[in-house]
């Protein structure tokens, strides 16, 4: 295995330079084999397709089915819920929580992604300098991911507690007043945002770092010979070559951020006064927040999130097509 690597790597690097510079798509030359190669391609994909069908189809259909019927706890058990079409969705749209939840979801998602990505990219570029200990420190950045969210979110609410939290102790020590991070409507969304950005940074760091690693060094060397400075190298080389990885990182970040509920639920329960209620929290609260679950509206809110992800997925694919016209 190691032998193969050593042999292929130099080739790949040399080839990648060529590909990056000319970006010339390889001419296709196999109309006669088309049927066979399509079959081969599908053979590679087939296990995942079967896997998706087995494990995702049922929950997805189930979620849709829950949202178009009127389930009570009783009909959840005996399966006799009447079909109500889009009534649950209309009720969700009309609900007083809809407006605030939409705004909170948008603010939470956009700000989370912007900060996670920017910080993650900055750190990836920084760690890419490869100084002593860089690999170890970079590995340590992943430690927050080893903790169950229950623990990390609880630790954050511990630190942000109004009276006994270390953050307020620090603020008071430097002369600033007490901030009710989790218990005032003005700050609760900011607090959960901070915690969520903290959790998301390692993800962005690691993926973008691997992206940087796959940019061949020869490209930089060539640019240096042309007299490019650090910024120019970043904007003209690093950024464009990082684009496919950056795009998927952003897209995944979006999907994961839309879904976030544990952190918010543990820290604020979406409160106070709905000030940190996102769609994911709203859905969870309807379904599991009280001792009487309300599955149908919960599923409807959940499906709105799926639709949102759907829209962004379409945008991503369009963007990908435009960048890669082959």
């Amino acid at each position: 295995m190691t032998v193969t690597q050593v042999r292929t790597e130099p080739t790949s690097r040399g080839e990648q330079v060529g590909a990056a510079q000319s970006a010339a798509p390889t001419p296709r030359r196999r109309p006669s084999h088309r049927a066979r190669s399509a079959l081969v391609a599908w053979a590679f994909v087939a296990p995942v397709v079967v896997y998706l069908a087995l494990f995702y189809a049922f929950p997805l259909i189930r979620n849709i089915e829950l949202s178009v019927r009127d389930y009570t706890v009783r009909s959840f058990i005996d399966g006799t819920a009447p079909f109500v079409g889009i009534d649950n969705y209309l009720a969700v749209f009309r609900d007083a929580t809809f407006g605030p939840a939409l705004l909170n979801t948008a603010a939470f998602t956009v700000l989370s992604i912007v900060f996670q990505f920017a910080i993650g990219l900055a750190l990836a570029v920084f760690f890419f300098r490869r100084f002593p200990l860089s690999a170890t420190l970079r590995a340590l950045f992943l430690v927050p991911w080893l903790l169950p969210l229950l623990v990390s979110a609880s630790t954050w609410s511990w630190m942000l507690n109004s009276e006994s939290g270390v953050v307020n102790a620090f603020l008071e020590a430097v002369g600033a007043g007490q901030i009710n991070w989790l218990t005032s409507p003005q700050f609760s969304l900011i607090s959960v945002l901070i915690a969520n950005i903290w959790i998301g940074v390692p993800f962005n760091l690691v993926i973008l770092y691997s992206g940087l690693q796959s940019i061949p060094e020869e490209v930089y060397e060539a640019a240096s010979l042309d007299g490019a400075n650090g910024w120019q190298k970043f904007w003209r080389i690093t950024f464009p070559l990082l684009r496919p990885v950056a795009a998927i990182t952003l897209l995944l970040g979006l999907v994961y951020t839309l879904k976030v509920f544990d952190i918010i639920w543990i820290m604020t329960r979406g409160g106070p006064a709905e000030s940190s209620t996102t769609f994911a929290i709203w859905s969870y609260r309807l379904g599991f927040g009280s001792t009487l679950p309300d599955f149908s509206p919960a599923a409807a809110v959940g499906n709105l999130l799926i639709v949102l992800a759907f829209v962004f997925g379409l945008l991503y694919i369009r963007m990908q097509r435009r960048l890669d016209p082959s």
């Binding site: 706890v73 005032s184 106070p272 006064a273 009280s290």
Partner: peptide, 23 residues
Amino acid sequence: GTDYPIISEQLWTAVQNALTGAQ
């Protein structure tokens, strides 16, 4: 019975809204 969870949810919401000064 099962009216309680519905009432209770509104009760804790009211408590939260009043304690935070939102209402």
